[in-house]
Design a protein around this nucleic acid. Structure first.
Lengths: 193, 193
DNA sequence: AGACTTCTCGACCGGTTTATTCGAACATTT
DNA sequence: AAATGTTCGAATAAACCGGTCGAGAAGTCT
């Protein structure tokens, strides 16, 4: 049925809001059902389990992030701006997702291997994006990159390093200035003098 | 002991962060304990129950709000500005507290009478504050108020009316413009032409 | 040191919550 | 009207969670 798939999407959207607010464990099927104005049991007609819903939600969120990122880097021309806006959008989105992280890193090591899969896939995609930005920057003689592969990897590592303190501490210092500082450092090492 | 009271405060502060994030029901004693890096049982040496902690948290938060409000209206001179800043600070603070509301209005009608007590007390205080603002405004010939008592009550009713849609709906329209619109209406009826 | 107080914690208890199942009912299609 | 798609209330088994208890660590006083 075409409508079944439609309703699955609705479930993903609605439960996504709740998951993002309360995390996996604290979100109950009853809450999801109530938000959808259906009986709790009915959810199981569309999804096999709470985890399957969560998986769909995360997958969906990851796709949204990817779209935001590609749109963002397309929205500007200069390589410096591309890099800058990429980093900013990425961090903003991750901030929004902090509750998923809470959920994932709680205690459930067995389950949630699917998160690892998604993560791996998006790490690869991110690397490609970064390399593209670097490549174009080098072409335009703005960046000075000898090996875009490794440079992209280095940048990705930096971004990942940012994630942890971003999520586990609460608004210690404002993110913007921190990102700007990092970008400054990054550019001074990269930009042709 | 002086240190016992000290640690009670620490508990209130820490658990307050969690309560404000997840509400009363979804916050567990284990989480509070873990955040404090002590055993769950140890909490019961300082507080009799989860509810008692919650009570202390709400009381504390109410005091903070009061201080913010008095500081805010002192920070400006003109009656119009005083009124405006009062309304803004009040709404900003209430926004922050939305999760407490979630907790309180869940289903637990029996318990939480203490919230009613706090609320009543602060309603009275708020009325006094509003009346003061109105009175000074009238003195400076900026406001045209015949009966400050009833006018204050009317304003308070408006502000209370704002609370409900503010909390139960999510960011439909941005609060600022809504508040500004209300203030406009309010002033046009109050300010001497 | 030893007695006494303060404080911490692991283990446990019983009531509640919650994810999931199942079958019956309702709805729609064939 | 049979078959198929969809919803839901009730039941269940397991996990969870607030709270208790007693043992004992840590500190204080004499």
């Amino acid at each position: 049925m075409v409508n079944k798939e439609e309703f699955r999407k609705k479930i993903v959207l609605t439960s996504g809001q709740i998951f993002s607010r309360f995390g996996f464990k604290k979100t109950t099927m009853d809450e999801i059902a109530k938000a959808l104005k259906i009986g709790k049991s009915s959810i199981y007609y569309y999804f096999i389990s709470k985890e399957e819903i969560f998986e769909a939600v995360v997958l969906n969120e990851a796709n949204i992030l990817r779209n935001e990122l590609t749109a963002a880097i397309k929205s500007v021309e200069s390589p410096l701006e591309k890099m800058k806006i990429y980093v900013f959008v990425r961090m903003k989105s991750f901030e929004k997702l902090s509750n998923y992280y809470n959920a994932i890193f709680d205690k459930n090591l067995d389950h949630f291997e699917f998160i690892e899969r998604i993560r791996e896939k998006y790490d690869r995609e991110e690397l490609a994006m970064l390399r593209l930005i670097l490549y174009h920057g080098a072409r335009k003689k703005v960046f000075n990159v000898t090996n875009s592969e490794y440079t992209a990897l280095a940048i990705q590592t930096t971004l990942k390093g940012l994630e942890v303190p971003l999520f586990w501490k609460k608004k210690e210092l404002n993110i913007e200035s921190r990102l700007n500082a990092i970008l400054d450092v990054l550019f001074y090492g990269i930009v042709k003098k």
